[in-house]
């Protein structure tokens, strides 16, 4: 169980690694959310019509990788309050993706700990595709539990 006192400046959080991600993984995601965008499952279309290097790993899938990364780290005691991410580069079939995060700062708000993080997703060649930032709320050891539902007003200075 993680508490705010455990957090150190520049501390990395545990990586989340997935892959190599092949066409079956992409097909499974497209099917799960009923996304028919052809660049995610039709290699001939993706490379021939759209000129892409291969079928593209969905941005919608990658965002959940970051939510999962942060949710696994905070566990049941913390709360992922805010997440911002940008799809700067595409990732394609065959890549192995590593979601990562690093503490960039801390604050306290109303009896809770607020952790600022830099997050991202890189492939096996170290190419970053999905930079972002996040705010996570953690309890103090022995302090009150983070409220659920969470109130974003708690983050106001």
């Amino acid at each position: 169980m993680i508490a705010f006192e455990d957090i150190r400046p520049n501390q990395p959080i545990p990586d989340l690694v997935r892959g190599p991600l092949g066409p079956p993984h992409l097909m499974r995601w497209s099917s799960a959310i009923e996304n028919w965008h052809r660049i995610h499952y039709d290699r001939d279309y993706a490379t021939g019509h759209d000129g892409l290097p291969d079928i593209v790993i969905n941005g919608s899938w990658k965002q959940h990788l970051l939510m999962q990364l942060l949710g696994r780290w905070t566990g049941d005691t913390g709360w992922l309050a805010q997440l911002r991410l940008q799809f700067r580069k595409m990732n394609v079939a065959g890549e192995t993706l590593t979601a990562w995060g690093r503490v960039t700062g801390t604050d306290t708000r109303g009896g809770y700990g607020l952790v600022h993080l830099e997050v991202g997703i890189r492939n096996e060649n170290g190419v970053e595709s999905t930079p972002g930032t996040a705010e996570v709320v953690l309890p103090f050891r022995g302090g009150p539990a983070v409220p659920c539902p969470f109130t974003q007003d708690l983050l106001a200075p």
Partner: peptide
């Protein structure tokens, strides 16, 4: 798709 900004409750 350029990205997202989320607030979670």
């Amino acid at each position: 798709n350029g990205g997202y900004e989320y607030l979670f409750y």
